[in-house]
Write a protein that binds this DNA or RNA. Structure first.
Length: 575
RNA sequence: GAUCGCUUAGCUCAGCUGGUAGAGCAAUUGACUUUUAAUCAAUAGGUCCAGGGUUCGAAUCCCUGAGCGAUCACCA
């Protein structure tokens, strides 16, 4: 691999430190008794408490002025300025710790530990006067340097921002180091999950774990990932939902169960979709979907308050108000509201005409339910910014949902739409085993017609229902999407530490022995690599005269103290 | 999958109608004892994404491909 000049430099510094008897990666613990945030928040009020501090972090900037220097270190709570003076750091005659170690062999990105006392500079910045300095980890890879200034109005201006999305997601650790806001986003995501978990626990619902590897994938309409178990010699699927397992637990006698579940769907990727995503599914016995609406309003309102101290959350251009109660529409009402058309009594032919009039794309395979869903998705969903319950879906779309208590052809299902996207999906769960079997069979028909997302029939699940499941309401909350809204993130990739990416394309590079094999002297290999001959095939195709000239020229340029090859030698490589 | 855009130094980006590759930061060497994107002087650093074409001459124009992004379509 070709190293950049700066990487070579840092490797050299590592060696030199070792020769000076300084371990660049010491084994011993480093005692930390304070954090950057702690100092900044409390020093002014309790100055005497900060006369002897010990803190560790990453060196993020340096301003060297002869025998004194300012630098910044960053720990998990933020940055703080440190001040180093040669004669304080090196009280004796030996000034090498400052002159040679700090100034020459430490770099931005290195992790250091310091001991000293807190003071305020003439410019008014709380800083640490360093009395002892310990290298804790040498960094060999230069860090992107992001700088920030603040004008009189407190407006922040960022220079050389590390903003390339590909690099940020592939090397999230770098993103976290140099973009402090990223850390905040992920802390909020965790707090969101904790808030929901605490709320569910406070009601006595049990957090459970169910299989991720499932012989039959069920609970949602989606294409699964397949895998294979060797000992059982059988096909397994990565779960697309955990619904059918959680309902089995309700059959088993729990009143409420929930699971924060990673689910996997083998479908397209976009700023709203990642192949693996998180949803929490919750099932509560003896409840219906009206109860669940109230419960969800309360849950999400709690999340907003916990994260923002307010029920209002700014998302892009909009301010979203999560305060209860939220608007409630039946699907028919929503469609009438946005299009002015009452479709509640229409048959399939009439619906098709409506779609045509509204310029909603349809195809012949679509039944009544699908047509209604298309109209809703096209004409209503994007306009629903404030959290809104959409209730009572067509039965065709919801094979696991109980039929509506009074409306023919509908089911007791709601979704919550917020910021133009679905964030929640809930039902009064279907618990009539005969009805459930018929619905599964309808799905099988769809599958025969080529619907790859149709649900499979799960005999054991049906057997469980036949023993009797109490009336139950269940919900699935899209954690990633809720996190996007709560953290004002434009893309799902911004709320996942490691979003799925295409594999990094690495050029195929010939190994040292490949070069040696065709007769290249070891010391000449870097020259060939520098010239761009990264594979033997490339080398074989080269022109002898040009190659000979280039190699000698590059040797001179790199100022390598080695013997140039002869023309005959170069010729021999290409044979 | 479709359309549009981007790819130049370690990082952020200039580079006009085609004529010897540029800046700031980072790096190296030096000056400087409280700086705030520290400053000053000097040095080094490039397969201009890859391949082909047009041309006396291509980072620049054309074609093909790759990666990435944005928008749209399907899915949570």
């Amino acid at each position: 691999m070709q190293l950049s000049e700066q990487e070579i430099q840092r490797r050299k510094e590592r060696e030199e430190l070792m020769k000076l008897g300084i371990d660049p990666y010491p084994a011993a613990l480093f005692e930390v008794n304070v954090s950057a945030r702690d100092i900044k928040e409390n020093y002014e009020r309790r100055k005497t408490d900060y006369k002897s501090v010990s803190i560790a972090g990453r060196l993020m900037s340096r301003r060297i002025m002869g025998s004194a220097s300012f630098a910044e270190i960053q720990d998990s709570t933020g940055r703080i300025q440190i001040y180093l003076r040669r004669d304080d750091l090196c009280p004796g005659d030996d000034k090498s710790l400052y002159n040679d170690i700090f100034k020459k062999r430490l770099d931005i990105g290195d992790i250091i530990g310091i001991q000293g006392y807190v003071f305020t500079t003439q410019m008014g910045e709380i800083s640490i006067h360093v009395q002892e300095l310990t290298l804790l980890s040498k960094s060999l890879h230069p860090l992107p340097i992001v700088k920030e200034t603040e004008d009189e109005k407190g407006q922040k201006k960022t220079y050389d921002a590390f903003s390339d999305p590909e690099q940020r997601y592939r090397q999230r650790y770098l993103d976290l180091i140099v973009n402090p806001k990223v850390k905040e986003t992920f802390k909020m995501r965790t707090q969101l999950i904790n808030t929901l978990r605490d709320f569910f626990n406070s009601k006595g619902y049990l957090e459970v774990e169910t299989p991720i590897l499932q012989p039959i994938h069920g609970g949602a309409a989606a294409r699964p990932f397949e895998t294979h178990h060797n000992t059982l010699n059988m096909k397994l699927y990565l779960r697309i939902a955990n619904e059918l397992y959680l309902k089995r637990l309700i059959v088993g006698g729990f009143d409420g169960v929930y699971e924060f579940a990673k689910d996997f769907r083998n479908e397209g990727m976009s700023r709203f979709h990642n192949p693996e995503f998180t949803q929490v599914e919750l099932y509560v016995a003896y409840k219906d979907y009206f109860w669940m609406m109230d419960f969800m309003e309360e849950a999400v309102e709690k999340v907003a308050l916990s994260l923002h101290g307010d029920t209002k959350v700014k998302v892009g251009e909009n301010t979203i108000e999560f305060q209860r109660p939220w608007k409630r529409f039946t699907m028919f009402e929503a469609i009438e509201h946005f299009t002015g058309i009452d479709i509640s009594k229409m048959d399939e032919e009439q619906l098709k005409k409506v779609c045509k009039d509204l310029k909603v794309d349809i195809d012949d395979s679509m039944g009544k339910g699908k047509l209604i869903d298309e109209i809703f998705g096209e004409k209503c969903e994007p306009h629903l910014i404030q959290p809104t319950f959409i209730m009572d879906y067509p039965v065709e779309m919801s094979p696991l949902t109980k039929k509506h208590r009074s409306e023919e052809g509908l089911v007791e299902r709601f979704e919550v739409i917020c910021n133009g996207k679905e964030i929640m999906n809930a039902y009064s769960e279907l618990n009539d085993p005969i009805d459930q079997r018929e619905r599964f069979e309808e799905q099988l028909e769809l599958a025969k017609r080529g619907d790859e997302e149709a649900m499979a029939l799960d005999e054991d699940f049906l057997r469980a229902l036949e023993y009797g499941m109490p009336p139950t309401s269940g919900v699935g909350i899209g954690i990633d999407r809720l996190a996007m809204i709560m953290t004002n993130s434009n893309s799902i990739q911004d709320v996942l530490f490691f979003p799925q990416m295409r594999p990094e394309k690495k050029p195929v590079v010939a190994s040292e022995s490949d070069y040696v094999e065709v007769g290249v002297r070891k010391e000449l290999i870097p020259i060939l690599q520098k010239l761009g001959f990264n594979s033997i095939k490339q080398l074989k195709e080269a022109n002898v005269n040009k190659l000979f000239n280039d190699v000698c020229g590059m040797r001179k340029k790199l100022k390598l103290d080695i013997q140039n090859p002869t023309k005959e030698e170069v010729e021999s490589w290409l044979e």
